[in-house]
């Protein structure tokens, strides 16, 4: 990598799509944990085991990250607060799921909120990440994926 802004490649897109699969597994297992405890315990337990796992992964990969860390810009303090936002998400989600919205409504509106934020984030380059003007293709892909997701979410849980 010679440039500071690498061009998007197929592998990045596949990684993002595959990451969605990880999310499904994560939600499944965390839901399992929640059934034995509650939503707060599930999130707390997952964050705890996640912290330990992250330390183990870092220890395993320790030798591999020695190069060019000195050249990087230091992170602002707020960049460390992603976990707060994540923890708040868990509580808000469990609130919404137990309202008349139920799971389907919560998921659908959550996707909407996520997409609106990401549009603003790209448009203005929020929180120090590169600014990217969404193209027509971006918006077409967005419309297709949101429509497909809405169909799946809103019809899940009913016999055909």
């Amino acid at each position: 990598m010679t440039t500071s802004t690498p061009r998007p490649r197929l592998i990045h897109f596949m990684a993002a799509f595959g990451t969605g699969g990880l999310l499904t597994l994560m939600v499944h297992f965390n839901g399992e944990l929640g059934r034995y405890g509650n939503a707060l315990f599930s999130s707390w337990g997952a964050h705890g085991t996640g912290t330990v796992a992250a330390i183990l992964f870092l220890a395993l990969l320790y030798r591999r990250r020695e190069r060019n860390t000195a050249e990087r810009l230091p992170a602002p303090f707020w960049a460390y607060l992603g976990g707060l936002s994540g923890a708040a998400t868990v509580m808000l989600t469990s609130l919404a799921v137990n309202s008349p919205l139920a799971l389907a409504g919560t998921l659908a509106l959550g996707l909407a909120g996520q997409v609106v934020f990401s549009l603003g984030a790209d448009l203005w380059g929020l929180f120090g990440l590169p600014r990217r003007r969404p193209t027509l293709r971006d918006l077409a892909a967005l419309a297709l994926i949101l429509a497909g997701s809405a169909l799946i979410i809103l019809f899940r849980g009913f016999e055909s």
Binding site: G21, L23, L111, V115, A121, D122, L142, I145
Partner: peptide, 14 residues
Amino acid sequence: GAVNTAILVIGGQM
């Protein structure tokens, strides 16, 4: 970018 990441993760999750 944020938009592509969001929609691909959502698509993969679905």
